[in-house]
Amino acid sequence: MNIIVCIKQVPATTNVQIDDKTCTLKREGVESIINPFDEYAVEEGVRLKEKLGGKVTVISMGPPQAESALRETLSRGADEAVLVTDRAFAGADTLATSYTLAMAIRTVGQFDLIICGKQASDGDTAQVGPGIAEALDIAHVSYVRKIEQTTNKLDNPADNCMRVERMMEDGYDIVEVPLPALITVVKDINTPRLPSLKGMMAAKKAQIPHWNAEKINADKSRIGLSGSPTWVKKIFYPPPRKGGDMLSGEPQELAKKLVDKLRELKVI
């Protein structure tokens, strides 16, 4: 099974600061990591490959330094990595990003399954996965918490199919999806492995190709800022939440005080 995993490099902390001068996010000095949700995607891809054979190609769109995130996925068992990078991609919103990644996937060529994390921890949109599926005109299932079974029939690829559990607010749906398809995965699906030492050593030496807009045949009007319908007008800190009453005393007293207060407020 040929699997493509899309990842994003994000700041290691979500506790980012706004630069007072430029009113944009301070990116300097902030450590970067693989988007935590994408780690589940990489792990699931590697597990499927280990079970069914094939290979895992990881793709990321981002600045040249995103290479380090790709290298890490190689140390965790991915076979190949591609960095899609071009100044012309800068400022892309989810639509332009979906298009760009879809074009990069087309450039990779044949695939059976694309796996994405459910969302990135910086943008928190959860829109790029389904967006890629639409751009490639394949089926997708979001919020997958388990792959129940895969039927990978080499003799009749038309029958290739996957049965997955899609997480819902109050349970889960069981859905069958024909391959090729895209899934986005949630934390529940696996526990990502740590890299192996041999994997880390090999990953350090691996060549990671950089593909620009031309290489992936991207339509200039659909990438970067020009391909992005949504614009960030401004960013600001949310108003901090103020603390309230600190209650102390014996358990009975505490309980009474609380229940009285809640009844006063008519919330119970």
Binding site: T14, V16, T230, W231, V232, I235
Partner: peptide
């Protein structure tokens, strides 16, 4: 965004 640490106003 950023897990609620930043708010952004977006236009289309």
């Amino acid at each position: 965004a950023f897990g609620g640490n930043i708010m952004a106003t977006i236009l289309t």
